[in-house]
Each structure stands twice: as C-alpha cells, then as structure tokens.
Computed example of a mutant assay.
Amino acid sequence: MEELVMMFGNVYANRRILVTGHTGFKGSWLVLWLQMLGAKVAGISLPPETSPNHCDLLGLDVESFHIDIRDEDLVRRKIVELKPEMVFHLAAQPLVRRSYRQPLETWATNVMGTANVLDACRQVEKLAAIVVVTTDKCYENKEWVWGYREIDPLGGHDPYSASKAGSELVASSYRRSFFNTPSSPLLASARAGNVIGGGDWSEDRLIPDLVRSVEAGKSLEIRSPNATRPWQHVLECLSGYLMLGQQLLEGNKPCADAWNFGPDREGNRQVKQVLAALKADWPTVEWHCCDTPQPHEAQLLHLDSGKAREKLFWRPVWTFDEGVAATAEWYRAWLDRGDVISLNQLQNYIKLARERGLSWAGDVLP
C-alpha cells in the first residue's frame, strides 16, 4: 500500500487525525482510507450497534475510545489528551425514523454533541483543521426539483433533519466566534447525499434492510418507492471530505465554509430505481410496497455540488450504476464467502480515479 500514500498532496502522512464516529459505517471506511494515507488515527465513538459491523470486520489497528459525545467532560479530556492535528467529526444519531422515537437523544447527540466536540477543540494546541460532517437533509426541504445549494435555508421537519441543521448552525457559530484568529484551526462542514456501500447494517436504511431480507430469504417491504434521493457510494463523499481536509490543512481559509458533496444528476433516483439496479447485479433481491401510514419523510431531495466541483475540482469517480454494482458485490462477497473486500474496492476506486484524471488521486510512485 506504500504506493498510495501520495494522494491528497500527502498532507495526511504521519498526522494525528481524530475521527469521531469511527465505529460507524462512514467512519470505518474513512479510517481505512486515512490509514492507507499513513495517518496516525484515533477514534471516539460509541461501540458498534450491530453485529456484524464494518469496523470489527476490518480489524483496523486504531486507538479507539468508547465515549458518548454527549458527555462534555469526557469528550474534552480525551480530545485534549490526544492532541489531534485534525478532526473529522462524524459521530451522530443518523437515522430519521429513530429520531421520531428518540427525539431528545437525537437533539442532544447531533447538536450538543457537536458543540462538545468543537468546544474541546478550542483547548487543543496545534490543531489545524476540523471537518464537521452533517447531511443533505439539513436543508429546509421545499420539494424543489432543483438541487439545494450551500446558501439555501437550513431547516427540517423530523428531529433528525432539524438537529442536523442545528449542528450546522453550531459549526458556523464556532467558526465565527472562536475559530476566527490567524492561529485558529480552519473549520468546514460537509453535506453528502444518501450514501450506499458495503458494510452498513444500520436499521431503517434501504440497503441494510434489503441485505437482511435476502439473508432471511424474504421480500423487503418498501415504504416510499417513489421517493427521490441523491444516491452515492460512500467512497465518493469520503473523497470530498479528504479533499476538503487537505485544503484546510494547507491553510486555504476560504475553504472554511459549508460544502455539498453529492452525485451527478444521474444519481438522483427513486427508491424503486435503486432496487431495480441492485436486482440487475443481485438476482435474489425481492421487494414489495407497503400501504401502512408512515412518519413524514421528504419525497424529493437533490443536492447541487457545483461549488465543490468549481472550487475544489471534486467530482464523483463511479457512475450510479458502478456504485450500486460495488455495493452489491460487497454484500454478495460477505454473504456467499464471508469475505470483506473493502480494501480491494478502495484500491480499485483509487485506480479508476487516476485513470479518469482526478487530481486528488496523484501518481503511483516508482
């Protein structure tokens, strides 16, 4: 893996990087990539909620601390002790339907948890950069046919969406109030679309629910087959986070702002279209529609990532079909053979990024 270290301008090599939420789906993929880049990674998170889970399957050698980010004192003490040079804050309550069942937990984790992490960061000397990861659902959804831009109003109907808008406001407030001197770390936020990929076993998510139904030999009940979302593979948004982190570590102050990382227009698909694409790669997939009344969820959501494309020169590597195929391949390898092919998929993704001329992928060293 040594030949891959020169990605992202080599800014992550030997740096102390803290990832909150490192035991989660996105967080575990991010740790895998950061370690490939030669970073010294530590993680703060709750223990994984599911068995199996991607974090344990990867078996990563990382300093891991099981801390609830709602615990202000423990969070502060551990972050100050770790002395990170950069923080990727991913820890959250990430599920819409759970937020209806547990609204106070959702608000406390997503808003006050973010505040606790950022306040602890104020005490860390030589901290250079912070990326707070939120979601496309932080926008006040008006069911527009065009994509939401970073300048559009924040909001949310359900506790999850609204609390993520709240975490964006926390990040903006800390950036303007506390991280506003020449010696302060640069703070940005990142908003991605509906993320798919291997290793996710979360509740009430389309792909994990489908995997469980395939494993049980059952048809999956679908709540909103016509709902449209910006679907993207997990590696796509992570490449955006890492590109953004690179700019912050290099001292690019205008990048200390909010950023969308979503798919191209062809990635905006209805749920039933995602399922049809999965079935093309995975014939045993079966589903049916549900007529039972459900809690409110937006039916139409698009992201406009023009800012990231223009100013960061970021763009997706895989097409929608390629991302879906990689997702199906991961789960089939796991279910059929017990294989965890995450590293192989990451390497293939990077190779294709180089072939397609993406700047962050760099060149293979001799």
Rank of each mutant, 00 (worst) to 15 (best):
G9F: 04
Y12W: 06
I17C: 07
I17G: 06
G21R: 03
G21Y: 05
G21Q: 04
G27R: 09
L30R: 03
L34V: 05
G38Q: 07
V41M: 06
A42R: 05
G43Q: 05
S51Q: 14
P52Y: 03
S64E: 13
H66N: 14
D68G: 05
D71V: 01
E72I: 04
L74H: 12
R76F: 09
R77G: 05
V80H: 10
K83P: 11
P84E: 08
F88V: 09
L90E: 06
P94K: 07
L95Y: 14
R97W: 15
R97K: 14
R101E: 15
T106H: 02
V117Q: 09
R122Q: 00
R122L: 04
V133Y: 00
T135A: 08
D136N: 08
D136A: 13
C138V: 12
E140T: 00
W146Y: 12
W146K: 13
G147V: 03
G147L: 06
R149G: 09
I151V: 14
D152Q: 08
H157A: 10
H157C: 11
D158T: 01
S167K: 11
L169K: 10
S172P: 04
S177P: 08
F179A: 08
T181P: 13
L187A: 10
G193W: 03
G193V: 03
N194H: 14
I196E: 00
D204S: 14
D204G: 11
L206S: 06
R212W: 11
G217S: 08
R223S: 12
R223E: 14
S224H: 13
H233G: 02
L235A: 12
C237E: 13
G245I: 03
P254C: 09
A256N: 04
A256V: 03
G262E: 05
P263F: 08
A280Q: 15
W282N: 06
C289R: 10
E297I: 07
E297Q: 11
Q299V: 00
L301R: 10
P316S: 10
G323L: 02
T327K: 07
W330H: 10
R332S: 09
W334N: 12
L335Q: 13
D339C: 11
D339R: 12
S342F: 02
L346F: 03
L352P: 04
L352T: 07
E355S: 15
R356W: 01
A361R: 00
G362W: 03
D363N: 13
